[in-house]
Every structure is written in structure tokens, then in C-alpha cells.
Measured scan of single mutants.
Amino acid sequence: KELVLVLYDYQEKSPRELTVKKGDILTLLNSTNKDWWKIEVNGRQGFVPAAYLKKL
């Protein structure tokens, strides 16, 4: 499993997105899109802007 660090808080703006908090370490599911990465948070899957995340 690949992990990502959340660099900035992000509030979901659609049902396909997820809310994340700065400092969270989460599972990366897909990073093929350069702008939006798919991650998992508490069993939910969704997208967060790639600029808000850093691969560990």
C-alpha cells in the first residue's frame, strides 16, 4: 500500500471527494490523474486534489 501525507485541509465539494485534515496519513488508491488522487479515509473512497497530498 502506498501512503500519502495531507499537506493542507481540504473540504469536500462533491460526493466524489473526501474531506481531509493537514497531517493525516492516508492510503493512496490511484494517482494516475495528475490533478486528482483517489484515497481512502475511514473506509470511504474518494478524490482529493493532488496538490494537497505528498507521497510517503
Score class of each variant (00 low, 15 high):
1 K>V: 15
1 K>G: 15
1 K>S: 11
1 K>I: 14
2 E>Q: 13
2 E>R: 09
2 E>N: 13
2 E>M: 12
3 L>M: 12
3 L>F: 14
3 L>R: 09
3 L>E: 09
4 V>L: 04
4 V>C: 09
4 V>E: 00
4 V>M: 02
4 V>D: 00
5 L>R: 08
5 L>F: 08
5 L>N: 02
5 L>T: 05
6 V>P: 00
6 V>G: 01
6 V>K: 00
6 V>C: 06
6 V>W: 01
6 V>S: 02
7 L>C: 06
7 L>Y: 03
7 L>R: 05
7 L>T: 05
7 L>F: 03
7 L>A: 03
7 L>M: 11
7 L>S: 02
8 Y>N: 10
8 Y>C: 12
8 Y>S: 11
8 Y>I: 10
9 D>F: 03
9 D>R: 02
9 D>M: 02
10 Y>F: 08
10 Y>T: 01
10 Y>H: 03
10 Y>C: 01
11 Q>H: 14
11 Q>Y: 14
11 Q>K: 13
11 Q>L: 12
12 E>I: 10
12 E>C: 11
12 E>F: 09
12 E>W: 07
12 E>L: 13
12 E>T: 10
12 E>D: 07
13 K>C: 11
13 K>M: 13
13 K>T: 14
13 K>S: 11
14 S>M: 08
14 S>D: 12
14 S>Q: 09
14 S>H: 13
14 S>V: 04
15 P>N: 15
15 P>I: 09
15 P>K: 10
15 P>R: 10
16 R>H: 15
16 R>N: 15
16 R>A: 11
16 R>K: 13
17 E>K: 07
18 L>W: 03
18 L>Q: 05
18 L>N: 03
19 T>V: 06
19 T>K: 07
20 V>S: 01
20 V>G: 00
20 V>K: 00
20 V>I: 09
20 V>W: 01
21 K>A: 11
21 K>P: 01
21 K>Y: 14
21 K>W: 13
22 K>G: 07
23 G>T: 01
23 G>I: 00
23 G>A: 03
23 G>F: 03
24 D>R: 04
24 D>I: 03
24 D>K: 04
24 D>V: 04
24 D>H: 06
25 I>F: 06
25 I>H: 04
25 I>N: 02
25 I>A: 02
26 L>I: 14
26 L>T: 07
26 L>M: 06
27 T>Q: 14
27 T>F: 12
27 T>R: 11
28 L>V: 07
28 L>A: 03
28 L>K: 01
29 L>E: 03
29 L>N: 03
29 L>K: 04
30 N>H: 07
30 N>G: 08
30 N>Y: 06
30 N>A: 12
31 S>H: 12
31 S>R: 06
32 T>G: 09
32 T>P: 04
32 T>W: 09
32 T>Q: 14
32 T>Y: 11
33 N>H: 12
33 N>R: 08
33 N>Y: 08
33 N>M: 09
33 N>A: 08
34 K>V: 09
34 K>S: 12
34 K>L: 11
34 K>W: 07
35 D>H: 12
35 D>F: 14
35 D>R: 11
35 D>I: 12
35 D>E: 13
36 W>G: 03
37 W>D: 01
37 W>H: 02
37 W>P: 01
37 W>C: 02
37 W>G: 01
37 W>Q: 01
38 K>A: 11
38 K>R: 12
39 I>C: 13
39 I>V: 14
39 I>D: 00
40 E>T: 07
40 E>N: 04
40 E>V: 08
40 E>R: 05
40 E>I: 06
40 E>C: 11
41 V>C: 12
41 V>I: 12
41 V>R: 13
41 V>H: 15
41 V>E: 12
43 G>P: 02
43 G>F: 06
43 G>D: 09
44 R>V: 10
44 R>E: 12
44 R>H: 12
44 R>A: 10
44 R>W: 06
45 Q>F: 09
45 Q>T: 14
45 Q>W: 11
45 Q>N: 10
45 Q>I: 14
45 Q>E: 12
46 G>I: 06
46 G>A: 06
46 G>N: 01
46 G>P: 01
47 F>V: 08
47 F>C: 11
48 V>S: 01
48 V>P: 00
49 P>M: 03
49 P>L: 03
49 P>W: 02
50 A>F: 02
50 A>Q: 06
50 A>P: 07
50 A>N: 03
50 A>K: 07
50 A>L: 02
50 A>W: 01
50 A>I: 03
51 A>T: 11
51 A>V: 14
52 Y>E: 01
52 Y>N: 12
52 Y>R: 05
53 L>T: 01
53 L>K: 00
54 K>C: 14
54 K>N: 07
54 K>W: 10
54 K>I: 12
54 K>A: 11
55 K>R: 13
56 L>A: 04
56 L>E: 04
